[in-house]
Design a protein around this nucleic acid. Structure first.
Lengths: 206, 206
DNA sequence: ACCAAAACTTGTCATATGGCAAGAACTGCT
DNA sequence: AGCAGTTCTTGCCATATGACAAGTTTTGGT
């Protein structure tokens, strides 16, 4: 039987090597807080094409992606499939309005590849949010960060040409561009796959 | 000298008639919480064309609008003025990324008319947020609500024709459409004032 | 290794929206 | 009331992007 000291050391090691430890690094969360937080997240896996969330459901949990790629999309009034967001390792996958307003979501969230994720349910989240100060700050920061990213994307849709939007995405998220199909990237940028194909050709010819 | 009971009654009345009491109504905030919250907000006024926030500044406070209209805008890389958001009575005016990341803002927020607002600074906000449970919930709800509105707007920019975007705005925020200049509404919708003028004509002729 | 399905490219033509500029209608100031 | 500045409308033409459809290439399952 290991002595208590040994046990503590093992736990400390486990925390330090934990994927979420990297995600929460530089957030000011203390080691003690981390030991409260990490056990609340459970490892789940998704296979390619599995749905994390389907339109009409209420989201009661969310995920951090350790590995794999995920896409969220909506079906517009004309029946077109429009990619709303693309996620990769380290990203948080959450439909904030559904999670916090208990509202049926309008979006579908689907694994593009096999994925390893860390899941937390709403109750656990709420408890941590209300008791762990730095977790609260960190999670509010995530939400604000999502808002900011969406804001920049929205401005880009208005102010930039399609080609500039693509170059911007390529610069900011090259791993997404390399791993996601042209069609999905195109609708995320607000253009058709045909147009994006032409834009790529144009860039290649420069 | 009024007796204590009378004083309490006066305060209760003052709270009940307070503009912010309406704003916070239906948020689950108790009367006791309300008495902690409301004194933290101070009434400020802006004159037409005053800036609430200028590009490059860090936002250290935010506002609820009691009366008047406000516009936020950014100057894009080609020097175009693009309306990012339009605010009216009851709305919260805040640049979340600047406020919570202490980052210089990219946007300008300007009064379109004389305004009466209720202001709270970051420190007071933070204190209420960390101590008053229902305030925390309510304010998180505001942020999520802003995210949701931006999300819908962003989807609309991709999925809808300019005319549909205008009709959508007209339906959801008729008071904004009626009180804000065509130019500002146009850039908010991602089109030129010329195009919006034609769209209005087209609608009028139907 | 092979076939079917999916992903991507390319051509032709259509159209929503932009750019620019001139004029008309407001608005606010003295 | 009158003038100056702003806001809105309208015309003409340019262009970015879409729609559709036919090919080509890549991918994945057996």
């Amino acid at each position: 039987m290991p002595n208590p000291k040994q046990k503590t050391k093992n736990m400390t090691d486990a925390i330090e090597q934990h994927f979420l430890n990297k995600v929460f690094a530089s957030s000011g969360i203390t080691r003690e807080e981390m030991m409260q937080i990490i056990p609340r997240y459970k490892k789940v896996t998704f296979e390619k094409n599995d749905y994390l969330l389907k339109e009409g459901e209420v989201e009661k949990k969310y995920w951090f992606i350790e590995s794999g790629f995920v896409r969220s999309y909506i079906i517009d009034t004309e029946g077109n499939d429009i990619t709303f967001n693309l996620y990769a390792s380290g990203d948080v996958v959450i439909d904030y309005p559904s999670m916090f307003f208990f509202a049926p979501t309008r979006e579908n969230i689907q694994a593009l590849t096999d994925c390893i994720c860390w899941e937390i349910n709403f109750e656990s989240f709420q408890e941590l949010f209300n008791t762990v100060l730095n977790y609260r700050e960190q999670q509010r920061g995530l939400l604000v960060g999502s808002y900011f990213a969406l804001k920049e994307h929205s401005i880009s849709l208005i102010a930039d040409q399609a080609k500039d939007r693509y170059l911007r995405l390529l610069k900011m998220k090259p791993h997404i561009v390399q791993n996601v199909s042209l069609k999905h990237i195109a609708t995320f940028l607000g253009i058709t796959d045909t147009s994006l194909s032409r834009i790529r050709k144009e860039i290649a010819n420069e």
